[in-house]
């Protein structure tokens, strides 16, 4: 009879050690936030804490002069429901700003931004 309470306690204790997110926030990106890269990427890859409703996600990548350099809408990444890819056309060095609006599959909207620098 002591097995059930013990299992419950272990499960609770284990669960306490994990952070819960419950909205789609940026987990990682490539290029990474704040990074300095030598060659311009063909696409910006964003990975979130939750699965995404990609058709309603929006990403703008702005050049140092404020011009949008993304060439298409965010694309889903096959086999990764929590990722999206944005094709970009970057020809000049400088600091680029990524402004994202995400919609998670639990219907919540989130947004954020970060920058990376292209410096050959």
């Amino acid at each position: 009879m002591r097995v059930l309470p013990l299992s419950l306690a272990v499960l609770l204790g284990t669960a306490c050690g994990f952070p819960a997110f419950a909205h789609a926030f940026l987990k990682q990106a490539n290029p990474a936030p704040g990074s300095r890269i030598t060659s311009p990427p063909a696409a910006v890859l964003l990975t979130y804490t939750e699965g995404l409703e990609v058709p309603f996600c929006k990403v703008t990548v702005k050049s140092p002069s404020g011009i949008a350099v993304q060439t298409a809408k965010p694309q889903p990444v096959s086999g990764h429901a929590d990722e999206l890819s944005v094709p970009v056309h970057i020809t000049a060095p400088g600091k680029y700003t990524v402004i994202w609006h995400a919609v998670s599959v639990d219907t919540h909207r989130t947004q954020g931004h970060f920058s990376f620098t292209v410096s050959p």
Binding site: L11, T14, A15, F18, P19, A20, F21, A22, A24, T49, E50, G51, D82, S104, V105, D106, T107
Partner: peptide
């Protein structure tokens, strides 16, 4: 599957 647990991955997502 329309709630938080359905959207999250990993142990916490499965548990939720």
């Amino acid at each position: 599957w329309l709630g938080h647990g359905g959207a999250m991955t990993g142990f916490v997502g499965t548990m939720l």
